[in-house]
Design a protein around this nucleic acid. Sequence first.
DNA 1: CGTTATTTTAAACAGGTGTTTAAAATAACC
DNA 2: GGTTATTTTAAACACCTGTTTAAAATAACG
Lengths: 214, 214
Amino acid sequence: MKTKDKILDSADVLFANKGFNGTSLREITSQANVNLAAVNYHFGSKKELIKAVMSRYMDELSPQLESALLSICQAEHKPTLHEVFSAFVEPLLSLNEFKKNGTSTFLQLLGRGYTDSQGFLRWFLTTQYPNVFTHFSKAVKIAYPELSSEDMFWRLHFTMGTIVFTMSSSEALIDIAQNDFDNKLDIAGVIARVIPYVAAGVAAPISKSYKLSV
Amino acid sequence: MKTKDKILDSADVLFANKGFNGTSLREITSQANVNLAAVNYHFGSKKELIKAVMSRYMDELSPQLESALLSICQAEHKPTLHEVFSAFVEPLLSLNEFKKNGTSTFLQLLGRGYTDSQGFLRWFLTTQYPNVFTHFSKAVKIAYPELSSEDMFWRLHFTMGTIVFTMSSSEALIDIAQNDFDNKLDIAGVIARVIPYVAAGVAAPISKSYKLSV
DNA sequence: CGTTATTTTAAACAGGTGTTTAAAATAACC
DNA sequence: GGTTATTTTAAACACCTGTTTAAAATAACG
């Protein structure tokens, strides 16, 4: 296996588990059985390595997501919000074939990127993969046309938060749930549970006023 | 002002903005105009400083939360989920009188703690302030008795994720929203928007099966 | 005031960080 | 096979990390 791939394979798991700041290049390279300098030689810097890790997943994921969302937009019947969100399930789970534990690793990485690096990843995703966002917005708009742009903006970010945050601590939560409820559950099960939640959240009735007496 | 408080005041803002790992003691002490060794002298270690920062907020917040949730549980009429979640609003916003930008700082800290330190803060909160969780669970159980314990477990963690994640990036989101929608919005406005979302999410109908064909 | 606590200070500590260097090893090509 | 490219390697780089030390400054108290 090529050095570049060995680095990527070790890096994404470590980044997912311990964050970008919390993972050192020495951890990555020693786990990958690779010389320390290899990262800077092949990727240039740690920041570029982070981008490469995310790109590897997004390049696999974004075409699938785009086509799934597009076919929902072009379907004959008006889709429900539940259907829109369900469009993410298959592409996300396909990452498990792409790489072992790929789904949860990627979602954890997404969570890390949102909080670790002060918005750097938000910029990276929205500029490098804008179609996913626009197609998704279109689909939601079809499913729930009464929702104003501003309400949609907030609710989509709430949804992003729910997903990303849940997945970034999914392993710990699955452990707790298995102890307390004695119920086998994997990442697919968590996704199946979160979809009705976010669909209902986005579908929530619109309040007249957001002003509170402070 | 006493050294200990100067440290706490600088630390919580820096921790909120850059994370626990991402903030060095030298940043904290230099911004607080205090000697580097003061942290170890007054708090013992960086980890203890983190606990002290969180405790200062939780000690202010938890009595208010507990009494608000308790009075909902003991009310004559059966509360709605929206009412249960609204019980958090006033106590949270009161942190703004406790300290400038206290509400968003605290919520950001909460988000940091969940992702930064590999579950350390989850342990800290659930062991040091268990009543908030039990009262909250009781209130939700009253408002939505059909929800199984397991479903509630997951939906409450989804909710936690939504809140914490949204707030940890609330400043960036408020900036974007103000540019795009030209609508003044503060932390109270964001809270007012997120409550219908999470209430609807928790209130979502229960799916029969969580098994997906993988 | 003098004496004991408490707090502050500058300096050093040992260890970790990302990155660079120049020599050694391997691969590619004619 | 000989000569370039490419890749790997160990070592060092400069800087940052949390923590400790012992002396200096301040406060508290009889």
